[in-house]
């Protein structure tokens, strides 16, 4: 499965990339973007199956980005990865087409099980 990472924090991007490129993973990280605009461009280029999506980002935020990604390819699996401070925004992101939510901060195990849960139940 091709995985794309969208997050404005370099640390988070690196972390997801490190955890998901470990051996024994069914994921192949095809790219990471630091805002919605970059994500759209990268999406066209790499056509990922699964996307991890931050919500608050400069240029274009997660909600706008999700609705654009879904309109481009509506079977894209999207996992919102964000802090739990604003539930309403996260729920809005799910309404726009995301499939699940992972709360920041997260452990390696939490990330892995969330992503495998996401692809298992399609």
């Amino acid at each position: 499965m091709k995985l794309m990472i969208v997050d404005d924090s370099n640390i988070i991007r690196k972390k997801i990339e490190r955890v998901m490129t470990n051996e024994g993973q069914s994921f192949n990280v095809v790219g990471s973007a630091k805002n919605g605009k970059e994500a759209i461009a990268l999406f066209r280029q790499t056509e990922p199956d699964v996307v991890t999506m931050d919500l608050t980002m400069p240029e274009m935020d997660g909600i706008e980005c999700i609705s654009q990604l879904i309109s481009m390819k509506n079977d894209t699996l999207i996992l919102v990865v964000s802090a739990l401070s604003d539930k309403a925004t996260a729920i809005e992101a799910l309404k726009q087409g995301a499939h699940g939510f992972l709360c920041k901060p997260f452990s390696d195990g939490e990330l892995q099980s969330a992503l495998s849960e996401l692809i298992e139940k399609v």
Binding site: L84, A90, F101, A114
Partner: peptide, 18 residues
């Protein structure tokens, strides 16, 4: 409404329960 729909994964949204 999200739970009544079939898109979101139930387990992955529990923490968002308002």
């Amino acid at each position: 409404d999200l739970l009544f729909g079939d898109r979101v994964n139930e387990k992955l949204v529990v923490s968002l329960n308002p």
